[in-house]
């Protein structure tokens, strides 16, 4: 097949060579496309990387330098400062912005949300992938529909409810919300992976006398560990980045703020906080997520776009 096509191209190329000059439509368009492609690569690299570079460079600059010359990017070596990080991390009592405690809050919330979400989703995803039961197809559709619902619509009743039972302002309320909101996507990603495990493995375990739960415990889940880890890290990223619910639930209690919320409050604070200090906070907020992302990029991309190639 490929051989024939190659031959075809060769014949066609030869025919073009003999009858026309070199500037056929094919060559002109190919040349233009190649040039455009490299311009495109440069364009996308600049627009995606530059803001992050800018973030880094501003965070190590004295604020006076920025005010004097906002167009300059590079920081002279002797003007380099890490005082911004010191100020943003230090506790409020020590004259800082208290990001260290925000980091702790974010880490607790995100980690617990990951475990809660996985604990709910692993059995659920396994059931949807392997077991035939009443309503199996509908369940999946319902879960995906949940994922499409406006967050702001859910925010109102949850805000009222958690206010009433006194959990607004506590980390637990937020953990419950994050875990339940991520369950649909967690199930979707894990189910795809369970589907890819050959069923014959489980069948032989069944023949050896394992029941369903033993099969799940000793065969399926151990095999799915890589997928479970990458899905968990994905949930971690969502919980770490989340803003709306953190704002609604925690804004009155500074000691419970997450890094996301803390940064947004710092950026809009009425007390003048130097932009470079806030920028250091932005770096602190971003670095863990980018690190997690690069660790899991391949698995994450495959899990998310599973099914997309079918069109």
């Amino acid at each position: 097949m490929t051989g024939a096509a190659d031959l075809g191209t060769a014949v066609e190329a030869a025919a073009h060579e003999s009858t026309h000059s070199r500037w056929t439509r094919e060559t002109v368009e190919s040349t233009v496309i190649t040039v455009l492609k490299w311009i495109g690569v440069a364009f996308f690299v600049v627009i995606t990387v530059f803001p992050f570079l800018y973030m880094l460079l501003l965070s190590v600059r004295p604020i006076a330098d920025l005010a004097r010359d906002p167009g300059a990017l590079l920081v002279p070596f002797e003007r380099l400062t890490f005082g911004t990080y010191d100020e943003v991390l230090r506790s409020v009592e020590q004259g800082g912005q208290g990001f260290l405690s925000f980091l702790r809050n974010s880490a607790i919330i995100a980690t617990v949300a990951v475990f809660a979400s996985l604990l709910l989703a692993i059995p659920g995803a396994y059931a949807i992938s392997r077991l035939d039961f009443f309503g199996r197809r509908q369940v999946n559709a319902v879960f995906l529909a949940v994922y499409l619902f406006p967050a702001i619509l859910l925010a109102i009743p949850l805000f009222v409810f958690f206010t009433r039972i006194g959990l607004r302002g506590s980390l637990i309320g937020l953990i419950i919300v994050y875990a339940s909101q991520t369950v649909p996507v967690t199930i979707h990603m894990l189910r795809t992976y369970f589907n890819s495990i050959p069923e014959s493995l489980e069948e032989s375990a069944t023949l050896e006398g394992c029941n369903r739960f033993q099969v799940m415990r000793y065969i399926s889940i151990p095999l799915a560990v890589p997928a479970i880890m990458s899905t968990g890290l994905f949930v971690f990223m969502i919980a770490w980045n989340e803003f709306l619910f953190a704002l609604l639930f925690l804004v009155d209690k500074r000691e419970s703020w997450t890094v996301s919320l803390g940064l947004s409050q710092l950026a809009n604070s009425t007390i003048e906080v130097p932009t470079t200090v806030v920028m250091a906070g932005a770096v602190i907020l971003t670095v863990p997520v980018i690190a997690v992302f690069f660790l899991t990029e391949r698995l994450l991309v495959e899990g998310l776009t599973a099914g997309a190639e079918k069109g």
């Binding site: 770490w240 806030v278 770096v283 990029e297």
Partner: peptide
């Protein structure tokens, strides 16, 4: 990988930048 940066980064941080 760099093309995915805007999507995975925390919205508060990139909006501030």
């Amino acid at each position: 990988a760099s093309m995915l940066l805007p999507y995975v980064s925390p919205v508060v941080a990139v909006a501030f930048v």
